[in-house]
Design a protein around this nucleic acid. Structure first.
Length: 334
DNA sequence: GGACTAGTTTTGTTACGCAG
DNA sequence: CTGCGTAACAAAACTAGTCC
């Protein structure tokens, strides 16, 4: 694959970011492989379908302060897909993973949760996640295993997902002395209402008639979910929504909609470059971008915007994430 | 106005050890 | 298995530039 950005020299900061990412890849690698094997042992959906409310809010969020700042609306005003990301949390990944697993059930039903959280005798939720966690030991005893760390990360993610701020998960055993996370139940993708209040609906497997944004099963089966950053997943979900709305053609978003309805800020928007390197997104520059006219007229006038256009490369997910990401990084650092 | 880059600050999860 | 306090840390968020 030819990536023209590869011809530009690598700056020091960029080199550092790529090296950090490679280190993380190396730490995660084995776990990713194991998770892929476990996915193969259970029933999952044929692809990941996500209801619109998860990544898009129909009613644009208010922007505080000077609108020309192009700042993101505050966390609580963004849709779940862009509110969930956190420095080292796995809440977004855990929720999407649960959706994917549960979508193997009959459409139109409220799916039960049949997997244990952590049981060595059978495939468990903890087997389906992979993180860069390493075995740590003090002297030669008293060590914390990778599995223990993953269980904690999962607990923390479920705490966050079930909190008032999100309401994407219900913990029926919350008040039990032990096993408070066992049997967690999914709630509707909209999560907590923007104005406050409760999310009353349990998660229902979408019917085949519902026309929903979707991502390929390879996101999970080939290990991408563990290795993409939350911002990159958020960007992919935005593209999936745009394709659901506008069909299989290059899509673009005006910044006002990107910020107020998708909650995708400048940094998350930059994710497109990495995703392009990984072969997951095609990027097309607007041919009219360098027109003399520097004044921008409204997007609704049918004028050509000077925006990049994107297209999901869904076939990209058919590749194994680990070697693909590694080669993209190597190619850049060479 | 938008794409893009670099550098800095903020954020809040995670790691960790230990205790119950 | 669960809870707690602390510190480390990575990613997000922000600031401030350039260029067209």
């Amino acid at each position: 694959m030819i990536v023209f950005a590869d011809l530009l020299p690598v700056s020091e900061g960029e080199r550092k970011r790529y090296e950090a990412r490679r280190t993380k890849l190396e730490k995660s690698e084995d776990e990713v492989g194991r998770a892929c094997e476990k996915f193969a042992e259970i029933e999952t959906g044929k692809l990941l379908r996500v209801r619109s409310e998860f990544m898009f809010r129909a009613e644009p969020a208010e922007l505080a302060g000077d609108p020309s700042d192009r700042r993101l609306p505050p966390q609580q005003d963004r849709p779940p897909a862009t509110r969930l990301p956190s420095p080292r949390g796995i809440a977004l990944k855990a929720y999407l993973t649960a959706l994917f697993v549960v979508q193997s059930r009959t459409p139109g039903t409220y799916p039960g949760n049949t997997l244990p959280l952590n049981n060595v005798d059978t495939v468990s939720w903890v087997d389906l996640i992979a993180t860069p966690s390493q075995l740590s030991r003090k002297g030669d005893r008293n060590y914390v295993t990778v599995r223990d760390k993953k269980v904690r990360q999962l607990h923390s993610a479920l705490d966050r997902l079930s909190g008032d701020a999100f309401q994407l998960v219900h913990l029926p055993n919350r008040n039990k002395g032990r096993g408070k996370y066992e049997g967690f139940q999914l709630l509707h993708e909209r999560g907590a209402p923007y104005g406050g209040g409760d999310n009353p609906d349990r998660y229902m497997v979408p019917s085949d008639q519902e026309h929903l944004p979707w991502l390929p099963a390879g996101l999970f089966l080939n290990g991408w979910i563990h290795l993409l950053e939350d911002t990159e997943i958020g960007f992919l979900l935005m593209l999936a929504w745009l394709h659901a709305r506008f069909g299989a053609q290059p899509v673009f978003v005006a910044s006002d909609i990107r910020l107020r309805q998708f909650g995708v800020g400048k940094d998350a928007y930059e994710a497109h470059r990495m995703l392009n390197r990984f072969g997951l997104v095609d990027v097309e520059e607007d041919p009219n971008r360098h027109l003399e006219d520097s004044r921008l007229t409204g997007y609704n006038e049918g004028t050509m915007p000077k925006l990049h256009r994107f297209e999901l490369r869904r076939e990209g997910f058919n590749e194994q994430a680990v070697p693909k990401i590694r080669s993209a990084i190597e190619r850049r650092l060479r």
